[in-house]
């Protein structure tokens, strides 16, 4: 079973990203599950979302506490939220950040990778400079570096959960995949 945890802020689309990812896994032939930890839905507040993937039906419904992968939608979050919490040994933390991965110094034994997804998002007009919408392109990066979900499935899954700018999102997704 693969367990993935998203960290984002309200409005960044972490929950949608988790759904697209789970659905892409489903399209790849896996059993998957996605769910958020909801508070009240407030823009800017930290949110988490989870994805589980397995080759059999997933029974467990508790939050993911020992993720294989952590996807952090905003570098700033890593400063305030314990994003590495419980990560499996050799787990991977993917952070949307212009900074170098060395900047992040987590206690856990894990890999860290930074990628400026915001730059790609802005290039495709996704969101604003202050709040770029990176939830789709970051999945391209994730697909490339983990090789656990296909780009094709992500492209197919995206329109189901994204209501506006589908084409731009998919172009950004592809570019992120290619650049990663």
């Amino acid at each position: 079973m693969i367990e993935i945890r998203f960290h984002g802020r309200g409005g960044q689309g972490a929950v949608i990203a988790s759904k697209i990812l789970a659905y892409a896994y489903f399209l790849d032939g896996y059993h998957s599950q996605a769910f958020p930890t909801y508070g009240a839905e407030r823009r800017g507040a930290p949110v988490a979302a989870y994805v589980r993937v397995d080759d059999k039906f997933i029974n467990v419904r508790s939050p993911v506490v020992n993720p294989d992968y952590v996807i952090v939608m905003s570098g700033k979050l890593a400063d305030t939220v314990d994003v590495s919490s419980g990560i499996k040994e050799n787990g991977l933390i993917l952070i949307n950040s212009e900074l170098n991965a060395d900047y992040y110094n987590f206690e856990e034994k894990c890999r860290v990778m930074c990628f400026d997804v915001s730059g790609i998002a802005l290039k495709y007009g996704l969101g604003t400079k202050i709040m770029p919408i990176i939830n789709v392109p970051i999945l391209g990066v994730f697909s490339k570096i983990t090789n656990s979900v296909s780009l094709e499935s992500l492209k197919r899954a995206t329109p189901r959960f994204v209501s506006t700018g589908i084409d731009k999102n998919i172009e950004a997704l592809e570019e992120a995949y290619n650049l990663a």
Partner: peptide, 10 residues
């Protein structure tokens, strides 16, 4: 609530 209502599954 949430653990079923908001969970995406097959």
């Amino acid at each position: 609530g949430f653990i079923l209502s908001h969970t995406l599954e097959e």
